[in-house]
Simulated scan of single mutants.
Amino acid sequence: MQESDVANRLIDAARECFLNDEYQRVTTRQIAAKAGVAVSMIRYYFGSKDGLYEDMIRQTLLPLIEAVEQLSLDGDWDFGDFFALYYSTMQENPKFPALILKVMALNQGPGKNVIRQLLERGRQRGTRRLAEIKGEETESEDPKYDLLRISFVSLAMLPMLAKPVLEEQMGHVMDPDFLKQLAEFNGRLLKSGLQSL
């Protein structure tokens, strides 16, 4: 078994355990057993349960952040692409939006700093790109960029957080086709908001 394989198995096992139970109730023994490795491997690769938890959050969110950054490098600014990417990522990890909410709003688990760092990375990149689009100088303190960013986060997260309730109210599931339509619609909303700034 290669070293990176052990670390990846621990990340996958941690994701499954932390998504299905509260942080305090999950033990390193459970995670190691699910990964099929010795408990000492958690300390070897991640230092502690906290370190493993933070790395699990980072590994789950980083591909999304990197993909968003790649989308923002070309000349087209299609917010619908961003929403579609977020929705598909969360569909693969349907319990993950609730985990993020628990970390950020309820302060559960040690992952708050990781999420804050990733959000700040996205904020800085997005602020620069939006300034380029508007043909303005970048002013990181300009509240209009925060308005746009918070709107994006709200439109992205709420449908995935409230998915069961929304599906019950609508009488149908939010399948990939529906989420594609929602992504396009939310993209148009955000673009309209940008033009009004």
Rank of each mutant, 00 (worst) to 15 (best):
Q2P: 12
D5T: 15
A7D: 00
N8R: 05
I11A: 01
A14D: 09
A14T: 01
R15W: 05
C17T: 04
N20D: 15
E22Q: 14
Y23K: 04
V26G: 12
V26K: 00
A32W: 04
K34Y: 01
G36V: 06
V37I: 11
A38G: 15
S40A: 14
R43C: 12
F46E: 02
F46T: 00
K49L: 00
Y53V: 04
Y53M: 02
D55I: 15
R58V: 09
R58F: 09
R58S: 08
R58E: 11
Q59V: 08
V68D: 08
V68L: 06
E69G: 13
L73A: 08
D76H: 13
Y87L: 12
M90Q: 02
Q91K: 14
N93Q: 08
P94W: 00
K95E: 15
K95S: 08
L99R: 08
I100K: 02
I100W: 10
M104P: 09
A105I: 00
G109Q: 03
G111V: 01
G111A: 15
I115A: 04
L119F: 14
E120D: 09
G126Q: 04
R129G: 04
L130R: 08
A131R: 08
K134Q: 13
T138E: 08
S140F: 13
E141S: 13
D142L: 06
Y145P: 03
D146R: 14
L147R: 14
L148I: 07
L148C: 06
R149L: 11
S151H: 10
F152W: 11
F152Q: 01
L155D: 10
M157H: 04
A162V: 13
P164W: 05
L166I: 09
G171R: 04
V173S: 04
V173M: 07
M174Y: 03
P176Y: 02
L179V: 08
K180I: 07
L182V: 02
L182N: 01
L182W: 00
E184V: 05
F185G: 12
N186W: 01
G187R: 00
R188V: 02
L190D: 07
L190Q: 02
L197P: 04
L197C: 03
